[in-house]
């Protein structure tokens, strides 16, 4: 393999092949039908549990560290993504923040946050959410004041 170190080449012999069955077909959670063979006997229990279980809205993607994390948001899009990205980037403790919608037919939005050592990615996200809410409050107040002034001036 050009450009690869020798050790990696040597490893290649030992690493077992991934069979087609092991590889996931997509990033989606396997459906119940696919899991059936594994869960087998506690199937009844599962069915009860799965009733009305809200999927987790925010998830930290595996492979994240304290100061560099990717968050996966369900049922969010550009509306929250871009505004959050902006407000998180405003935080001087944040080194990098970006958002993406990995696939248009999945209702998911990912945010990547990398911070300096002064804070953590989760804290930066929490602060971003709070800041955006405060910004909304300011804009609402400002709008209503101006709206009342406008009505009064007519």
């Amino acid at each position: 393999m050009p450009g690869k170190t020798k050790s990696r080449c040597a490893d290649a012999e030992e690493v077992a092949d991934t069979t087609m069955e092991d590889a996931p077909t997509s990033a989606q959670q396997p459906s119940d039908g696919m899991q059936e063979d594994q869960s087998g006997n506690n199937e009844e229990e599962d069915e009860k549990d799965e009733e009305e279980v809200e999927p987790q809205r925010v998830r930290i993607l595996p492979g994240s560290s304290n100061t560099a994390a990717s968050f996966e948001f369900l049922k969010e899009g550009h509306t929250m993504g871009n505004a959050l990205r902006y407000i998180i980037m405003k935080n001087p403790d944040v080194e990098f923040c970006a958002y993406t919608i990995p696939h248009p037919s999945e209702d998911k939005m990912n945010i990547r946050i990398q911070t300096y050592d002064t804070t953590t990615a989760s804290a930066a996200l929490a602060k971003g959410l709070q800041d955006l809410e405060d910004l909304c409050d300011v804009v609402t107040d400002e709008f209503w004041t101006k709206r009342h002034d406008f009505m009064a001036s007519k």
Binding site: A27, P30, Q56, I60, P62, A68, L125
Partner: peptide, 18 residues
């Protein structure tokens, strides 16, 4: 939703943080 985040869910070979 962030409050009830129970850490990383590595249960499946899904998308990963770089």
């Amino acid at each position: 939703g962030l409050g009830e985040n129970d850490g990383m869910d590595a249960g499946y070979d899904g998308p990963r943080s770089p």
